Computed example of a mutant assay.
Amino acid sequence: MATATPTAERLRLAVIVGSTRSGRFAPTVASWFADLAGQRDDLSVDVVDLVETPLPATLPGFDGPSPDDAALFDAITPRLAAADAFVVVTPEYNHSFPGALKNLIDAHYAEWQAKPVGFVAYGGLSGGLRAVEQLRVVFAELHAVTVRDTVSFHGAAGVFDGPVPRDAEGTGAAAKTLLDQVVWWARALRDAKSVRPYGS
């Protein structure tokens, strides 16, 4: 009989809700995914919603955020730093990803380094995959490792029945594959960094 992973040994997964647009569908997708991730005994899930934890429109300079903006960064930066891995939930807007998400990414650096990033995307015919393609390039510049498999919803509003996808089996299997890859990389990178700090 399998035993549960002790809480202290669980990987810390930050699920980032990347859309802040009025009427957004992101919370539905993110809640579904975070619930699945939270059912695993190897993960501790923190949902980082950019509506609930907004950053200022002006990014910090080389000396860090201004005193007026410091509290906003204090609400989100430690959570990113504490994460062992990330899954970004993103829509596709005009063949790309939301500006608020780019703002979050650009406002941080070391928090992403040598950690895995997975993607749950949604959109029209493309299912958000063009946004994911661009995010892979951005995260590579920040020394993050993006996992190969993606959960993608084409015409997302039409494939969800309330809070869950109609194809619960297929989407659940896709989410499991993504999470398995994220967990593998998170453990491998965490173990490697415990032996030798990244970049040394």
Rank of each mutant, 00 (worst) to 15 (best):
K193H: 04
V17F: 05
A192Q: 00
A174W: 09
P56N: 07
P67M: 06
P163M: 01
S19H: 02
R166E: 14
V147P: 09
A2W: 14
F160T: 11
H143I: 15
P163R: 00
P65G: 10
A114V: 14
Q113I: 14
L104Y: 11
A174S: 14
L13D: 03
G155V: 05
S96E: 02
Q134G: 05
A173T: 14
D41E: 03
D191G: 00
F153Y: 05
A156V: 09
A34P: 02
F153A: 02
L142S: 03
L104A: 12
A156M: 04
Y93A: 07
L36P: 08
K193P: 00
G172W: 03
G99D: 10
F97D: 11
P197T: 13
P98Q: 10
A37M: 00
R10H: 08
R166F: 13
K115R: 05
T171H: 15
F33Y: 13
V45K: 01
S152T: 10
V151H: 07
Y198E: 02
W112H: 09
R79H: 10
V48I: 13
S22T: 11
V87R: 03
R136T: 00
P67W: 06
Y93M: 12
P56F: 08
M1K: 13
G23N: 06
S66F: 03
F119Y: 14
L80Q: 05
G64Y: 08
A156E: 04
V17P: 03
L129K: 04
A100M: 11
E169P: 12
D180G: 03
E92P: 01
L142I: 04
Q113Y: 12
A140N: 15
R136G: 00
R10T: 06
A71P: 07
K115M: 02
H154K: 14
R136E: 00
D161E: 13
A71T: 13
L101G: 15
T3Y: 11
T177P: 12
L178Q: 02
S152H: 10
E9Y: 09
T7N: 10
G158Q: 13
L55I: 05
A114I: 11
A114N: 13
W184P: 06
T20D: 07
E133F: 01
F97C: 10
P67V: 06
W32K: 09
R166S: 15
A82P: 11
V48T: 04
S19A: 03
F160N: 08
G38M: 08
V195M: 13
A157K: 14
V138H: 00
R187T: 06
F139G: 10
V17W: 06
A157M: 15
R196P: 02
T90H: 00
S66E: 09
A30Q: 03
V195N: 12
D106R: 03
A30P: 02
D167R: 02
V164D: 14
I105Q: 06
G23L: 04
D49K: 06
T53E: 10
A110C: 09
S22N: 07
A100I: 07
G124D: 15
A30V: 00
G170F: 06
D167I: 04
G23Y: 05
A37R: 01
A34H: 02
F160V: 09
G128C: 00
